[in-house]
Simulated scan of single mutants.
Amino acid sequence: MTSLGRVLIIAGSDSGGGAGIQADIKAVTAMGGFAATAITAITVQNTLGVSDVFPLPLDLIEAQGRAVLDDIGADALKTGMLGTVETVERVAAILDTSDAPAVVDPVMIAKGGHPLLAEAAVGAVRSLMIPRAALLTPNAPEAEALTGLTVADLDGQRRAGEALLELGARAVLMKGGHVETGATVTDLLLTRDGETLLEGERIDTTSTHGTGCTLASACAAGISRGLPLEQAVAEAWAYVAEAIRRAPGLGQGHGPLDHGWRLRA
């Protein structure tokens, strides 16, 4: 299948446009998919950080998802900021109504440090979202919170990834941006059949806002188009690396990526 893949994104809105639903829509579109959304929360944020978060009512979140699934349908699902235990529970129930594979980005903290997942909800993500993930995409701090393991190097990424597979994820993309490995960044894709290393130069930039959202959504777009998992992840990884290199330098803090570079290439 190489047609326009349908991706239902269940995540929060970023008023600054660099992360969240806005980044998700841009990434899915750039990677050849069709993006639909169910917004979980509205954030007040820009490149300097998040100043407020307004969770949406659970029934409204579910109604958005149901409206999309009952009419347009989905070839892949992608979850991002969920925020509360109750939202995690409701989103897990939405995932159970679809046969489409889910890419779960366990968003916990914004780039500027603002918490986007209640501490009490970490356990709900562990018990409800991980077992429903066709692909889980944690960074090092998120993996540490979910497993209790230290992730300070490649071996730590591997151990945490294996623990997350044991918790029920069918595949785990352990992101290495937070791991201090010098001049290179290594992401590790683990499945029950083996592992794949994705390695590139560490780009010296502050324009990294929304990288996690963008990568997970780009992966979901590839999966929605029927690509094999390894190919979908590799293409998404390359897309994000170039989007960081071409970042437009907007804002005074952690700036956004150039999500649209593929559309102009």
Results as ranks from 00 to 15, higher is better:
residue 114 H to Q: 04
residue 119 E to D: 14
residue 166 E to N: 09
residue 167 L to Y: 13
residue 37 T to V: 15
residue 17 G to F: 07
residue 25 I to C: 10
residue 60 L to T: 15
residue 167 L to D: 14
residue 94 I to K: 11
residue 231 Q to W: 00
residue 162 E to W: 02
residue 142 E to M: 13
residue 113 G to T: 02
residue 238 A to R: 03
residue 258 D to T: 05
residue 160 A to K: 09
residue 66 R to Y: 02
residue 76 A to L: 00
residue 251 G to E: 06
residue 58 L to N: 13
residue 41 A to V: 04
residue 49 G to D: 01
residue 261 W to S: 05
residue 205 T to E: 00
residue 17 G to E: 04
residue 175 K to T: 15
residue 147 T to A: 05
residue 225 R to Q: 08
residue 265 A to S: 14
residue 191 T to L: 05
residue 66 R to C: 10
residue 38 A to W: 01
residue 146 L to Y: 11
residue 26 K to A: 15
residue 231 Q to A: 14
residue 231 Q to H: 05
residue 190 L to D: 10
residue 6 R to V: 13
residue 218 A to T: 09
residue 31 M to D: 03
residue 38 A to H: 01
residue 86 E to A: 15
residue 265 A to L: 12
residue 191 T to E: 10
residue 262 R to N: 03
residue 265 A to Q: 14
residue 232 A to L: 06
residue 15 S to K: 07
residue 177 G to L: 07
residue 176 G to D: 04
residue 64 Q to T: 09
residue 145 A to G: 03
residue 107 V to I: 14
residue 5 G to K: 01
residue 93 A to R: 09
residue 228 P to Q: 02
residue 242 E to Q: 09
residue 210 G to L: 04
residue 9 I to M: 15
residue 245 R to H: 03
residue 79 T to W: 13
residue 151 V to R: 02
residue 86 E to G: 12
residue 70 D to P: 01
residue 50 V to Q: 04
residue 137 T to L: 11
residue 149 L to S: 09
residue 58 L to I: 15
residue 213 C to E: 11
residue 87 T to S: 09
residue 56 L to E: 08
residue 31 M to L: 14
residue 149 L to F: 09
residue 153 D to K: 06
residue 123 G to S: 10
residue 46 N to H: 10
residue 83 G to D: 04
residue 104 V to K: 02
residue 67 A to M: 02
residue 92 A to P: 00
residue 50 V to W: 05
residue 156 G to S: 08
residue 151 V to Y: 03
residue 75 D to G: 09
residue 138 P to M: 09
residue 4 L to V: 13
residue 78 K to P: 05
residue 126 R to N: 12
residue 91 V to F: 05
residue 95 L to N: 11
residue 106 P to S: 11
residue 69 L to F: 13
residue 39 I to Q: 06
residue 155 D to L: 05
residue 130 I to H: 12
residue 55 P to S: 11
residue 167 L to G: 07
residue 112 G to D: 06
residue 260 G to A: 14
residue 42 I to P: 03
residue 46 N to D: 14
residue 197 L to Q: 10
residue 113 G to H: 01
residue 251 G to H: 09
residue 32 G to C: 01
residue 230 E to N: 13
residue 233 V to Q: 05
residue 184 T to R: 14
residue 44 V to P: 02
residue 181 T to G: 13
residue 80 G to T: 13
residue 37 T to N: 12
residue 30 A to T: 11
residue 31 M to S: 01
residue 229 L to R: 02
residue 27 A to C: 13
residue 216 A to M: 07
residue 132 R to D: 01
residue 72 I to T: 14
residue 82 L to P: 08
residue 212 G to S: 05
residue 113 G to I: 03
residue 141 P to R: 07
residue 249 G to N: 08
residue 252 Q to V: 04
residue 245 R to D: 03
residue 38 A to Y: 03
residue 80 G to V: 10
residue 240 V to F: 04
residue 41 A to D: 01
residue 96 D to E: 14
residue 209 H to R: 02
residue 114 H to A: 14
residue 207 S to G: 10
residue 252 Q to D: 11
residue 3 S to F: 06
residue 184 T to K: 14
